[in-house]
Design a protein around this nucleic acid. Structure first.
Lengths: 320, 320
DNA sequence: GTGAAAGCGCTAACAT
DNA sequence: ATGTTAGCGCTTTCAC
């Protein structure tokens, strides 16, 4: 009987059917806690992200949950709201030993703080933060992508390109890398970097983008284009541009990073850098699978760069 | 030693400290699978929703995860993509007996199919689907909310109000109730219900809203307002309105349901019915908590109506 | 106040 | 091909 529902044994077809019938009859369901205890595995994957409600992480989480389902894993989600303390606590404690692996997108955590947990279970880092030798990492090439986005704006004739989204206060290289790409493109074009065109934001929501855009316009910096480091920042900036009567793209071109779907239906549709999120999800799970199923083969952590593309839409058409 | 980290026993302060030090030293972490087996609880709550990437469910899931964290619960998420088969499978099988309770937002599932699982563990239904006597349910008053939205459009002088979002092919009352509210408002105003102004959609995404709007305009129905049954439908419809050169709100007013944040930053900002999602999350978890912690007191399932409000923004200002 | 033991429900291994 | 047993790691109980 023991192996009639675990599927492994060699049981007469008829016996198996009878047992199955009895199980159905009684409404029996195996106790997963016991099975997990026995197996030393839970089939659970932890996902630790800053926030689920932001479109970027919502989409990413959706893809991860979907990809996990295909591998018969279930995802448990925790949110950190970008708080370093929460990241530490969840990295350390997500479900105790209850998860077989962990995918974390750290905002405030420094690499050396990732050490402890990565020794227990496989950990995959999403984003720029690295933990060399300790965890796999999946990310896009932010410098290159930002360079391409900026270059695109230069190609359409813009010369006073603003950058919205600097976050010097975070232990997080994302913004720094996007800024670097922006600078690189300007430099190649022989343009100076104008500090007045670069705006810091506290968080990455629409309201932060709106505030940065308002400051930018009030400062008299007179941008003819905006490169927003995230989608939501771009939507906020766009909102303010409209409110101030600027025509997009004629008076102001807008390009953004992250490629959530809203942007396609924004007015006007927003040009965007689109990271291949499906591949991010897929590769992250592949990393976990490799380590969970062959813990022996201690291959060195991989550093995976997933592709991105620039989708040009109306918000950055050449000025009329 | 047994109760030194479970916190319950009466242990000398010094002993406790020594043990704690030893635990830290060794990097010991309790095995949750064993603890769960013992306790008969997992601390896991299942959340089964159609899709995580849609803004509405992303926001709701975020709030649920947050509220669950506060109760020391962890949320495991599964997506159904609105597929009845997946809903049935996940309702039946989410984590086997691994979750202490289940929150499900069914799209295609009929009430009687909810029976089986609800006998095992507490189940809370989100949305219109009811399972009288079997599960708690949390929802907004869709009829009333739709009535208010439509009435608002009537109050601003619109007379040819289109409704986008009918879904006659689904076993799902949401669209039906919103349509009912729409009809009720028209009737009260003494206006006829014009079938040409009511558009069916296959799914609830931006592209569906765009398609419906395009059909509507092509059909020559000449609406002066649109009531979209979801946010995403509204954003798609708005997109097409812009593309066809319609001025919003002058040529066409737009009101939508669900109140995701994008709408505030759309152009123009969209008037919306906002269900109190925070309260939805809070009440749903409260239901679970009540049943999980006092299974004895078999109180009858509650049918909770959470409040909503109409946020008027530019997209429905009186036509100029 | 401390230590020993039983048992949660499952499955892999072994004995019949 | 079927039946029995041991033990996963924890916590509760009971004995000291």
């Amino acid at each position: 009987m023991a192996d009639s529902f675990s599927g492994s044994g060699s049981v007469a077809e008829e016996t198996r059917a009878r047992v199955q019938a009895a199980l159905d009859e009684l409404g029996y369901r195996p106790n997963l806690a016991a099975r997990n205890l026995r197996a030393g595995r839970t089939g659970l994957i932890g996902l630790v992200i800053p926030e689920l409600h932001s479109p970027y992480f919502g989409e990413l989480a959706g893809l991860l949950v979907e990809a996990a389902q295909q591998r018969s894993w279930t995802v448990v989600i925790d949110q950190t709201f970008g708080d370093g303390e929460a990241e530490r606590r969840l990295l350390e404690g997500t479900g105790g030993r209850m998860v077989d692996g962990l995918i974390i997108s750290p905002w405030s955590l420094r690499p050396d703080e990732l050490t402890a947990r990565a020794r227990d279970i496989p950990v995959v880092l999403l984003g720029e933060q690295r933990a060399p030798g300790l965890a796999d990492r999946v990310a896009v090439d932010n410098v290159l992508a930002a360079d391409e986005a900026t270059t695109h704006l230069l190609d359409t004739g813009r010369r006073r390109i603003a950058a919205i989204g600097l976050q010097p206060h975070l232990h997080n290289d994302t913004a720094r890398q996007r800024l670097e790409g922006y600078h690189r493109a300007l430099r190649r074009a022989g343009l100076p970097s104008d500090e007045a065109l670069q705006r810091t934001v506290q968080a990455l929501h629409r309201e932060d983008g709106a505030r940065a855009m308002a400051e930018l316009l009030d400062s008299g910096a007179r941008p003819d284009a905006v490169f927003a480091f995230t989608d939501e920042l771009a939507l906020g900036a766009l909102h303010v541009a409209h409110a101030r009567g600027l025509r997009v793209p004629d008076d102001l071109a807008v390009v953004r990073f992250d490629g959530i779907e809203d942007g396609r239906y924004a007015y006007p549709p927003l040009t965007t850098v689109v990271p291949d999120k499906k591949q991010i999800a897929e590769r992250a799970l592949q990393c976990l699978a490799d380590r969970i199923y062959s813990p022996a083969a201690s291959v060195p952590p991989s550093d995976i760069v997933v592709p991105h593309r620039l989708e040009v839409r109306d918000s950055s058409r050449p000025a009329g």
